[in-house]
Design a protein around this nucleic acid. Structure first.
Length: 485
RNA sequence: GGCGCGUUCGUCUAGCGGCCUAGGACGCUGCCCUCUCAAGGCAGAGAUCACGGGUUCAAAUCCCGUACGCGCCA
């Protein structure tokens, strides 16, 4: 019998969803979809001081924007009941406590009365003697009488999990293979805090088991805690899930990806004009590849081809240049109607949504293949709707060139009554103008472009003139000439 | 400090003992197309496979060390 695949993403709501978390979410989602399994979202809010509802919202918004969905998990704090109970850890404390009591009753965990000062001292001594700074397990051996005395004195305690003292724990990682840890080198982890609540490592084990998670795919930083977690599963009489530890995502300087490298939040990428599909595709490839090094994937391909075994063990550097290329690829594949919908917020922000002027659909198709980011769009089309702003260099080089003014005025005259004011006809007419005056193409084409757009680069010339229409073109030709004095 | 993980073109990677004079992609350079910028097409530069030892007829691929980077223990 094969059990149904269940994966999860379990963020701490202490900030936004960053790139690394987004990739972890994606991989869990892809793996679940690939195996017709289920993907669960759980909120690990045991850090009461740093957890905020705003973070939950930001994280869920990010996942939704990425186009990923989940089968179970939080909607909001008050309506989050599912087949496995609430999906916020702070609402599950009673469950954790029940399992804690069981471990203590079975002698697999014990109360530790050491104070912070004692632990600090222990660590200091260990360092002095060049021993690893580990908890020495002194409360493990407390007699019943000593414990009773401590209780009577009202001493605060944490609870520690008893690690086996011999043998080794093997983590059979889906990405890294078998990784072995000597048990006697692991310390007795605190599973219950003095402030009366579960620690991350404990709550995580209980939840993953009770929620039926079969595959835990998470960041590299959790690999070292995995042997302890495996021993907790065993102590509770449970079968551990399959673990897979993903390598980290680095910044361009080889350090951990951080703010100083640019955007780290998924939502910032949305705001910069990246498409969700770009993010899915790029993130999938950051640490995973197919044997043929395929670059562009449809979602269906991503789902059928994704495989934990194909994941990279070494860290990957986040490359914005490649991200932009990929976004350009997908923007070019986007139909014009959809492109307009996507560009709307960016155009609105630039004051380019709805002003009178050429048909937006036509204008966008003129420059379609140049868009890398949705946020590029306003800048590339603004001169269709706003007064020309001359690039000083273009103005000096092209319009101040000898004869340019005469060309502009001559053309304005030639096009005054010219019909039809259309691409091909305009091209013919203007080429004839060039020939009649014994000029070179560039001596005419370039000044026109700068006169009507203010810059040296832009859409294909004659079609652009058609789209602008006679009035705008004539006005701009004359205006540019006038500026030349 | 201990334990663990990692190391193939600038970057993402293919590679699981012979097909590798190391393949693809981004980026870069040049050419073509051309009214500009793109897009597209073609060509090219770019990796002594971190280093040193083994094993083997044969190693980027297996083993052992070293270095460097990273993570966890705080």
């Amino acid at each position: 019998m094969t059990t149904k695949v269940r994966t999860r993403f379990a963020p701490s709501p202490t900030g936004y969803l960053h790139i690394g978390g987004a990739r972890t979410t994606l991989y869990n989602w892809l793996f679940a979809r690939r195996h017709q399994g289920e993907f669960v979202l759980r909120i690990e809010d045991t850090d009461e001081v740093r957890s905020t509802p705003e973070s939950v919202t930001a994280i869920l918004d990010s996942i939704k924007w990425l186009g990923l969905d989940w089968d179970e998990g939080p909607v909001d704090e008050n309506s989050d009941k599912g087949p496995f109970g609430p999906y916020y850890q702070m609402k599950r404390v009673a469950t954790y406590r029940a399992h804690l009591d069981r471990l203590i009753a079975e002698g697999k965990a014990y109360r530790c009365y050491c104070t912070k000062e004692q632990l600090d001292e222990m660590r200091r001594l260990a360092q002095l003697e060049k021993r690893p700074p580990r908890y020495d397990g002194r409360c493990r051996a407390l007699t019943g009488a000593q414990r009773a005395a401590n209780e009577a004195a009202g001493m605060k305690f944490s609870v520690r999990f008893k690690m086996p003292t011999d043998g080794a724990t093997i983590v059979d990682d889906a990405i890294r293979g078998k990784v072995s840890f000597e048990n006697k080198l692991q310390q007795d982890l605190v599973i219950w805090k003095t402030t009366d609540g579960p620690t991350y490592n404990f709550a995580c084990v209980i939840d993953d088991h009770l929620m039926g998670i079969t595959h835990v795919t998470r960041g590299d930083e959790h690999l070292s805690n995995t042997p302890s977690q495996i021993q907790m599963y065993l102590a509770l009489g449970w079968q551990p899930p399959v673990f897979a530890h993903l390598s980290m995502i680095m910044g361009p300087d080889g350090g951990k990806l951080s703010k100083r490298h640019g955007a780290t939040s998924v939502l910032e990428y949305r705001d910069q004009g990246y498409l969700p599909h770009t993010m899915r595709n790029y993130l999938a490839l950051l640490g995973w590849a197919t044997p043929d090094s395929q670059q562009l994937f449809t979602d269906a391909e991503l789902i059928t081809k994704f495989d934990l075994a194909g994941c990279q063990k070494s860290p990957a550097t986040f490359d914005t240049v490649k991200l932009q290329w990929m976004n350009g690829e997908y923007l070019r594949q986007t139909g014009i109607e959809e492109l307009i919908a996507l560009a709307k917020p960016f155009l609105e922000k630039a004051g380019l949504w709805g002003p009178p002027g050429p048909d937006l659909k036509t204008v966008l198709s003129l420059e379609h293949e140049k868009f890398k980011l949705l946020s590029d769009i306003p800048r590339l089309i603004e001169f269709f709707y706003k007064p020309v702003e001359f690039d000083p260099k273009a103005f000096d080089k092209v319009l101040k060139a000898p004869g340019a003014k005469e060309v502009l005025l001559g053309l304005a005259d030639a096009l005054k009554d010219f019909a039809p004011f259309e691409d091909k006809a305009l091209e013919e007419r203007i080429r004839r103008f060039v020939a009649d005056r014994g000029l070179k193409n560039g001596q005419v084409f370039h000044p026109i472009r700068v006169a009507v757009t203010g810059r040296t680069e832009g859409p294909t010339l004659f079609l652009m003139l058609e789209v602008m229409g006679r009035d705008m073109v004539l006005a701009r030709l004359k205006d540019a000439a006038a500026r030349l004095g």
